[in-house]
Every structure is written in structure tokens, then in C-alpha cells.
Design a protein around this nucleic acid. Structure first.
Length: 803
RNA sequence: GCGGGCAUGACGGAACUGGUAGACGUACAGGACUUAAAAUCCUGAGCCGCAAGGCGUGCCGGUUCGAUUCCGGCUGCCCGCACCA
């Protein structure tokens, strides 16, 4: 009897061997097919690794290890998304430089990840805060500028007073700061913007070319928010017939327009103010609107509000009817044209508004009762009525016809709008990539020449944003004052930095060639490795990070850097690991599990197996300490079993093992890691009942186990006298012939109820199976002497006797 | 409000294209070993019943020889989106 398994010793031993042999170093070997597996690189926080990280990392580690054994050239890299607020805040609090804090955190993460035995290629580590890395982040920005996709615009920006930082729309959740939960206010500020909207259509349509979970595609589509419709001009006599342009998805309802609405911020409103009869009321309403936050404007939207611009009318270009013009905050300045034609019969908001202000409602689509509620339908029987030339047409026909009419009349055109907004790319923070632009009074914004990259972050006294909201860099006069690269006159640097999303929008390209100082990565390496074959990460990054990185990747494709239009061929997501009390893990709830402690007590293999076994991979699941000890029991039992291996019995693998090979292989591909492990456990339960375990079976078992629990698998593999690593052996294949049993168990039912099971030869003729079935005692008893009316025999499965 | 998903023992969960519901693990009970406990090993177990049998996959109904699986309706939970014209 060997000693009890000691994971601490064994795991350290194998991690050292893998390191020394560089077992998982990715090489560009043209002879082998490539496989690029990617996990979201972590933010190295001061708290250290969360048990959620290894859930994703273990899953793709299993896949990567299996692929290597299958003869693939595997790239499974790791790095650090290290710019960001928490580190900066920690630095402010403790007076340490964020760089120092970051390096400390990275060292801790690296130690933790290494202790879990992931087969990362550590020689390709990237760090977004390394000037050799952010040089290329800045380079991409310069390219975006060069192509007109980066611009500076003064615009209302979401401002978090407590973080003292401008936030992207995406970082504002229900009017609150995503990071601190404080109320976000609007501030006017000049910001760098990226024209992601120029890519809206491609970001949407190319989703059809990739394999993402359907819910992820849906999220992307929702965020892009495409609407197909038309723009129509309504002339305003008071403005010398200047056109008020509206956007509508239902041009077929043009005959149902009874009033018009402008967003309070719409530029026409200021022009119309002196011309209307109630300027004071209008001004008061605009005032009230600006005081409302976006949140109040949407969330508190149960009650509609608005005010008429009295005396101002607009002319319907088709019906030539005059309708009143209103302003109301339910019309958003930022969507469409900031103005709408109101069709209260067939739009819920317009209906509520019309009811409240006693405006007329006209039915133009049949099938509902517009006196009771707005009727919205695109079904074929909802034909147009009261609509002149459209009468009797189905919605799709009516829309097409109306677009034709307005285009002929020259008063509008077919049009497509998106909810997607341009990306606010400036942050008034220290710990981010400096934006390599110079503001020259003579030349305007001038990019730094590429030769001056990286533009390094200067050392500053304080990392605190100024109370006026300026970046800490703005106080560094030495750094800020430069010569204009264009005219050599005095100029100032941009002092805002990039958002954290920047570095993570292209890191997967850098992994292909991480030490290149001439290009962000060589074309050759990118052609070899990209696109990424399998990307796994959390659901929290399936909207923004995915969208931003797809945008950058498409841009890099367009300028000839990236070889493919899409970065990720396949994207999956794992579920959250909840605390033992079924709540989200958090320090404040006191339910955080520290992976270090688990590794200390039970070892990495136990943690890996447990996290894969705890439940379906894509589902949120609570942590269970007893479940973890169960997995430790499994590991210990394996060690005991290894003493029963009969080394002399090395013929060929049993049917039982072939079946397991089949199951485990399939289940890994389907991400059913929980049942793959169940399958391994079943096999070991069978081994447990055997006097001796044939080496032929045990060998294959260890190979199947090795991606899941690599340390103990290597330890037991070595114990058998093998010189090579189990990780270097080929993945076993199931022999289809060995998967077919000679005999089958057939269930016998009487009227659908199970009465007996019989064991018969595979593919025994139905008649004979029937005879055997009817001879069963339980069957005879259930029949009670009655003659069967009908007997259904499903070959090798079931016999159902109907009485 | 709109869109999507889910609902199975005490618990996490399993079940291929409709074919023996509850694999695997946890917790539990009994036994062995031990002075004892832990650990380990063996055995049991969906529920009711001594048994025969009956009842069971959120609820009601349908299709079928047969439904956790398909269809209709309801309830509950989760996740997106949310004045987007």
C-alpha cells in the first residue's frame, strides 16, 4: 500500500516539470492544424483570484489539453488587463504608484494561476500597462484618427461625481454608476469619440457568420438596435417652409398623423420660440426637462408630458394637412432625427399623449379599436384604411408603396437608424493609456508621429482627478506643453486617457506575436493563429467588450492588419459561481471562497474537477463545501485504485473503457463537463469492484482524466513506469465496434407501465422478443389472462403490450 | 411592457432524434474497522405500503401504444432590452 496522495508535493512537482519542458509553449508548426483557445484575460485586482476565474480557465484548459493530445498546435495564452479604476483608487488611498500596485497584483495572480496547473503558454504573457504593449494601443488610435474614425466632440457626458470620471453610456446602469452605484449627472465636456456607428451594419450582419450562443447574438443585436423605415420632411410655414425631418418605421401610417413632436433639445425649438404664442410655457418645459436626469426621463415615464408650440403648424407632405407641433420629453434628441410624426391610433406613447392632451386619433390600420387603445400590428389582415392610395394594402405593401410615393414626391427617403451611439473614448484619469494627440492653436488636433510611440505615462504627484474634472495629467505642465509636431509652435498634449476597454479590444492579436517591436503582430503569425477558435468568458462582457473588440478588429481588417473580418469564430459563456447561500459572492456578504485555501487543503485537481462537476457550465451555481470534499474523496480513491493495476495485463481495452472514451470525448466538445466527469466516476466505480485493473484499461482512463486533473494523472502515469508525460500521448479513440454490446436490456410494458425487463441478444427478431416478453411472470400477471390487443416492439429498446 | 430561458428526490444535477425517470455527486440511514471519533470500506434508499401494488418530472388539458421530452393554457423564478418613433 502506497502512502496517501499528497497533492501539494505532486502538484508542485508537475508544474515545475511542465515549466522546464515548456510543455505548453505554442509553436507555429505548419504540419499541424492550429487551435487558438482564449479566455478573458483577468483584471489583476488586489483581492486576488476569484473562484469564478478558474471555472472559465479550467473549461478551456480541458479543451486545450485534449486538442494537444489530438495533434493540434494549441495557443492558450494569458495576460493582464491591468489599467483601471480600482488600482488607481487603491494607489490614491495608499500613496503607492499604480504601476507598483499593478505589478504586485500581477505577481499574485500569476502565482495563483500557476498553482492551478493551467496549460497556458506563459512565454506570451501580455500586460496592457506595459509601454511595449500600449504603444500599439496608441498606434491603433492614431490609425483610427487617420481614417476619420476618431474625433473630438463637445457633448453631454455622464459624469460620476464620486468617481470623478466621465462614463460611457454603457457604464451607466439605471442612471447609476456601474462601479460605485452613485447617481450619474450630465456634464458638457469635450471628449474623444470613436465612430463605432460607421460599423453598425457590419457588426450586425456579420453576426450571421460566427458561432456565438444565440443569447449573445441577441444581446449584440439589441444593443445595435437597427430600425428600418423612412425619413419624411414636414414643412413648417413659420420657418419659411423649412423642413422638419422625422424618422418613422411605419411610413404607411402617414395618413394617421395628427400632430408632430420635437425633442426639447431639437435645434428648431430655439428658432420657433420667438414665433410661437406661448414662449414662456415652452421655456419652462425645456427647463424642467434639462433638470430631469435621463433616468427620470425614461424610468419615470408612466406619465407623459409636453407642451404645444402654439400657433406653429407643420404640413403633412402627402395629405397636405396642417397639424400642430409640440415638444415632449418622450422624444429623444439622440435617436432618429429628434423629431417624430405622431400617429396616436397606432403607437402607444402617441396614443397616451393624444388622450391626455385631447388630440385627434385617426384609424389608418384596421383590426383594432383606436378609441380604446393604440393598435399595433404588421400582420397581413391589418390592412390600411383612411389612407387614400394605400387603402386595402397589407402593412408590408403599404410601407413599400408609401416609400415609393414620398421618394417620388421628393419629400423623404427610405432610411435605417441604429440605437448604437459613438463610443466616448476619453477618461479623466491617470491609470490609462495616454491619448497620443496634441492640440495646436494653429493646426488644431495633431497626431503624434508613430516614431514617438509609446507616449509614456509621466510620473505625477497625485493621481486624483481635479475638482474641475480634469485628468491628473493636466497638472503636469512639463509634459503637457509640447511643440506641435506639425508646425513646431507651442501646443498642449491631450491629458485624458483611454478607457479600460481599449487594451482589451485587441489583446488577442498581440498574443500571436507578443514580443514584436516593429508591428502589433506579424502578418504571418496573425495568419497562422487567427481567428480565435474558441473564446469563453462571462456574460457580463458579451455586450460591450465583444462589440468594441469586434469593432477594432474589423477596423484592423480594413486597414490590412488583421487577416479576418471577425475575431472570434466561437464564443461561449460560463455561469456565475454563487456563494454557498445562493447569493452573489462579495466581500460585503462575507461569502467569498478563496481559491488559495482550496488549493492548500485539497489541491488544484480537486478544485478543477469540482468546478467542472458542480453543474451545467453555462448556469449559475452555488458553491458547496461538501461537494468539494466529495471531489477530494474521488481523487483519494483514484490513488488507492492505482495500486490494483495489473501491469502484466496489457492486451486491449475493454468495451467499458471504449464507452467511456466515447462519452468523455463527446461531452468535452459539448461543454458538458459535469457529465464527462460523472462518466469517469462511473468507470472508477467499476474499477473499484474489480480484483485487478488491467493496465490497458487504466492507461486509457488516465489519458481521459488528464485534461481534468492533470497533476494526479501525470503522477499515476509516471507510477506505471512511463517516461513520457501523459500530456504527450495521443488522445484515445473509441472503436465503434466496441461500443455495440452483444446483448441488450429491453423494458417490457403493459399499457405503458413497466412490468419487467428482459435481456436478449442484440437485434433479435421482433417476434422472438415478443415471445420472451410475454413469458415474463410480471407481464402475465399484469395481463390477468386477457389477450393482447396490440404489441409494439421497438428494437433493442422496449416492448409495449396493449390490452 | 417586450423578447428569451428555466421548473425533476432532502440538495447540486442526469436522461440521445418521445421509449426502463432520478446517472454521478452531496446529505442521510444501517453495518464493518476503532476504546471512541474522524477517515475508509460495504449496504440501503423517489414517495406511500409488510407486500402485491399505487402515485410520481411546477399546475390544468391535449396528441400518442408510450410524454421530463411535442402542442395549448396557467403559475412561479431567472436573464436580456426597455419612451429607440
Amino acid at each position: 500500500m502506497t502512502e496517501r496522495y499528497n497533492p501539494k508535493v505532486a502538484e508542485a512537482k508537475w508544474q515545475k516539470i511542465w515549466d522546464e519542458k515548456q510543455s505548453f509553449k505554442a509553436v507555429e508548426d505548419e504540419a499541424k492544424p492550429k487551435f487558438y483557445a482564449l479566455i478573458e484575460f483577468p483584471y489583476p485586482s488586489g483581492e486576488g483570484l476569484h473562484v469564478g476565474h478558474p471555472r472559465s480557465y479550467t473549461a478551456l484548459d480541458i479543451v486545450s489539453r485534449k486538442r494537444r493530445m489530438e495533434g493540434f498546435n494549441v495557443l492558450y495564452p494569458i495576460g493582464w488587463d491591468a489599467f483601471g479604476l480600482p488600482t488607481e483608487n487603491f494607489a490614491i488611498k495608499t500613496g503607492q504608484h499604480p504601476k507598483v500596485v499593478t505589478q504586485k497584483n500581477i505577481a499574485n495572480f500569476r502565482r495563483q494561476l500557476k498553482s492551478l496547473g493551467f496549460s497556458f503558454d506563459w512565454s506570451r504573457e501580455v500586460d496592457t500597462t506595459d509601454p511595449d504593449y500600449y504603444k500599439w494601443t496608441q498606434w491603433i488610435f492614431l490609425k483610427l484618427w487617420e481614417k476619420g474614425l476618431a474625433y473630438k466632440a463637445s457633448m453631454p457626458v455622464n459624469w460620476c461625481p464620486s468617481c470623478k470620471v466621465g462614463l460611457a453610456n454603457e457604464e451607466v446602469v439605471n442612471g447609476e454608476c456601474e462601479r460605485c452605484g452613485g447617481v450619474v449627472v450630465q456634464r458638457q465636456r469635450s471628449q474623444w469619440m470613436l465612430k463605432i456607428t460607421a460599423y453598425a451594419e457590419r457588426l450586425l450582419s456579420d453576426l450571421d457568420t460566427v458561432d456565438y450562443l444565440e443569447k449573445i447574438k441577441t444581446q449584440q443585436r439589441n444593443w445595435i438596435g437597427k430600425s428600418i423605415g423612412a425619413e419624411v420632411d414636414f414643412s413648417i410655414p413659420a420657418l419659411k417652409n423649412k423642413a422638419m425631418r422625422i424618422f418613422t418605421t411605419r411610413p404607411d401610417t402617414l395618413f394617421g398623423v395628427t400632430y408632430m413632436v420635437l425633442a426639447p433639445e431639437h435645434p428648431f425649438v430655439q428658432e420657433l420660440l420667438p414665433k410661437c404664442q406661448n414662449p414662456d410655457a415652452v421655456k419652462a418645459y425645456i427647463e424642467a426637462t434639462t433638470r430631469k436626469s435621463d433616468f427620470d426621463r425614461t424610468e419615470g415615464a408612466k406619465e407623459v408630458s409636453g407642451v404645444a408650440l402654439e400657433g406653429i403648424m407643420a404640413t403633412n407632405p402627402i395629405t397636405k394637412k396642417s397639424v400642430p407641433v409640440w415638444i415632449a420629453d418622450y422624444v429623444l434628441a439622440t435617436y432618429g432625427t429628434g423629431a417624430i410624426m405622431a400617429v396616436p391610433g397606432h403607437d402607444e406613447r402617441d396614443w397616451r399623449f393624444a388622450k391626455k392632451f385631447k388630440l385627434p386619433i385617426i384609424e389608418v390600420i384596421s383590426g383594432g379599436d383606436v378609441t380604446k387603445e393604440a393598435f399595433i400590428s404588421t400582420s397581413d389582415d391589418a390592412v390600411a384604411v383612411n389612407s387614400g392610395p394605400l387603402n386595402g394594402l397589407r402593412p408590408s405593401e403599404a410601407i413599400a408603396k408609401m416609400i415609393q410615393i414620398i421618394e417620388n414626391e421628393g419629400c423623404g427617403k427610405a432610411s435605417v437608424k441604429y440605437k448604437l451611439r459613438d463610443w466616448v473614448f476619453s477618461r479623466q484619469r491617470y491609470w490609462g493609456e495616454p491619448i497620443p494627440m496634441v492640440d495646436c492653436p494653429k493646426c488644431g488636433w495633431v497626431p503624434l508621429p508613430e516614431s514617438e510611440l509609446p507616449l509614456r505615462l509621466p510620473e505625477v504627484e497625485s493621481y486624483q482627478t481635479s475638482d474641475t474634472g480634469e485628468s491628473p495629467l493636466s497638472l503636469m505642465t512639463d509634459w503637457v506643453n509640447v511643440k506641435c509636431p506639425h508646425c513646431n509652435g507651442s501646443a498642449k498634449r491631450e491629458t485624458d486617457t483611454m478607457p479600460q476597454w481599449a487594451g482589451s479590444s485587441w489583446y488577442f492579436l498581440r498574443y500571436c506575436d507578443p514580443h514584436n517591436d516593429k508591428e502589433l503582430a506579424s502578418r504571418k503569425s496573425l495568419e497562422f493563429w487567427t481567428p480565435i477558435d474558441w473564446y469563453n468568458g462571462g456574460m457580463e462582457h458579451t455586450v460591450l467588450h465583444l462589440l468594441y473588440s469586434r469593432f477594432w478588429h474589423k477596423f484592423l481588417f480594413d486597414i490590412g492588419v488583421a487577416p479576418s473580418p471577425e475575431p472570434y469564430s466561437r464564443r461561449t459563456s460560463h455561469g456565475l459561481i454563487l456563494g454557498e447561500n445562493n447569493e452573489k459572492m462579495s466581500k460585503s456578504r462575507g461569502n467569498v471562497v478563496n481559491p488559495d485555501e482550496v488549493v492548500e487543503t485539497y489541491g488544484a485537481d480537486t478544485l478543477r474537477l469540482y468546478e467542472m462537476f458542480m453543474g451545467p457550465f453555462d448556469q449559475a451555481i452555488p458553491w458547496s463545501t461538501t461537494g468539494l470534499t466529495g471531489m477530494w474523496r474521488f481523487i483519494s480513491r483514484l490513488w488507492t485504485l492505482s495500486d490494483k493495476v495489473d501491469v502484466s495485463d496489457d492486451a486491449s481495452a475493454s468495451r467499458r473503457v471504449h464507452k467511456t472514451v466515447q462519452e468523455v470525448s463527446e461531452r468535452i466538445e459539448a461543454m458538458k463537463f459535469n457529465t464527462a466527469i460523472a462518466s469517469l466516476m462511473s468507470l472508477t466505480n467499476d474499477f473499484g469492484e474489480m480484483e485487478k485493473i488491467p493496465k490497458s484499461d487504466w492507461d486509457i482512463f488516465l489519458k481521459l482524466l488528464s485534461p481534468f486533473a492533470p497533476h494526479i494523472a501525470e503522477e499515476m502515469w509516471e507510477k506505471l513506469g512511463n517516461k513520457k508525460l501523459v500530456a504527450e500521448t495521443p488522445w484515445p479513440k473509441a472503436d465503434p465496434a466496441m461500443l455495440i454490446e452483444d446483448t441488450v436490456t429491453v423494458a417490457v410494458q403493459v399499457n405503458g407501465k413497466l412490468r419487467a425487463t428482459i435481456i436478449v441478444a442484440r437485434d433479435k427478431p421482433a417476434k422472438e422478443v415478443e415471445t420472451v416478453a410475454l413469458a415474463e411472470e410480471g407481464v402475465a400477471r399484469a395481463l390477468g389472462g386477457k389477450a393482447p390487443k396490440k404489441i409494439i416492439v421497438v428494437p433493442n429498446r422496449i416492448v409495449n403490450v396493449v390490452v
